[in-house]
């Protein structure tokens, strides 16, 4: 096991940021911690990177205890904090060289590991980091976190605020890194990114809702799920809220994801109900659950 977390709790004054969290990440896995802002993701990252002490529980990273062996952990992990944390007034190359130096290595020594990512920003190596675009900043930050060949890579919300194109490229890079036997522990508020992880933990309000593979998470959804659509979306949401067979109704793109509260539900009943409420162009058909459906079902 690369990361072991046992019954970790952490409070700030009255606020319980983490409430009895346990999880395990095998070596070489791409593990996703999925949840909204304020769920406790950053707190868990800071505990695992030895920046915070937990109030209760124990944890280890590559066999080192996060409290006792914090120095060893600091030598073996790479960490990319939530906000862009590089020196804006240093150039791309200076930033990379600085992080190589403080980890006692050189760019040349581990160039192989970052080549794939770094070549994309190398043309701008003399540009100040502050003047890079969001996607490029993120690639530079990843290069800096990787330059000392860490065994475990901690990425706290690396894709937040980044556009979908850069996000997709970033995940492709992570997939390739995984082939280098690096354990990657990554957090994100975007549910659609969860599908790319080996295993994911859904977290909200300091509690873990479920840990499973993305497929397992979807399969655990306990209800049938239907896509519903009509011309008047706002009225549709309101009417579905008032419908007696509704368990939940949430907008998903141009459709509403509707789950019934009874197994006896029939689509024609709903269609009939909507017609009675003056909806037109009604569509109702069964669909498969997404991770987001499960997240909402579990956190409700």
């Amino acid at each position: 096991m690369s990361i072991i977390v046992k019954n970790i709790s952490k409070s700030y004054k009255q606020v319980k940021a983490l409430d009895n969290i346990s999880l395990e990440v095998p070596s070489g896995e791409l593990f996703g911690l999925i949840g909204p802002d304020g769920a406790g993701k950053t707190t868990l990252f800071r505990i695992l990177t030895t920046l915070l002490l937990p109030n209760e529980g124990t944890a280890s990273v590559t066999g080192y205890d996060i409290v006792k062996d914090y120095k060893s952990i600091r030598n073996t992990v790479g960490y990319m904090p939530g906000r862009f944390s590089l020196y804006q007034d240093l150039t791309v190359e200076e930033n990379l060289r600085f992080f190589a130096t403080i980890f006692g290595t050189t760019i040349e020594e581990n160039y192989d590991l970052i080549r794939d990512i770094y070549v994309q920003i190398e043309p701008f190596k003399n540009r100040r980091a502050g003047r890079l675009s969001g996607g490029m900043k993120q690639k530079l930050a990843l290069s800096c976190a990787l330059i000392h060949k860490p065994k475990v890579l901690f990425l706290d919300e690396p894709t937040t605020g980044v556009d979908p194109v850069s996000r997709k490229e970033f995940w492709e890079m992570l997939k390739r890194l995984q082939e280098q036997q690096i354990t990657i522990f990554v957090s994100t508020p975007y549910m659609d990114e969860a599908a790319l992880c080996d295993n994911i933990a859904l977290i909200t309000n300091g509690k873990i809702l479920r840990i499973d593979t993305p497929e397992g998470i979807k399969a655990s959804f306990p209800h049938k799920i239907y896509k519903v659509k009509s011309t008047k979306t706002f009225k549709l949401i309101q009417d579905l809220g008032a419908y007696e067979q509704t368990h939940s109704a949430y907008p998903f793109g141009e459709y509403i994801h509707f789950t019934p509260n009874t197994t006896a539900f029939r689509t024609q009943d709903l269609t009939h109900f909507l017609k009675e409420n003056h909806h037109t162009n009604i569509e109702v058909f069964e669909t498969g659950p997404t991770i987001e459906d499960t997240f909402m079902e579990l956190s409700d």
Partner: peptide, 12 residues
Amino acid sequence: EPTGGVDPITRR
């Protein structure tokens, strides 16, 4: 970007 980082239910 009114909903960045907001949980899925609140987002809806």
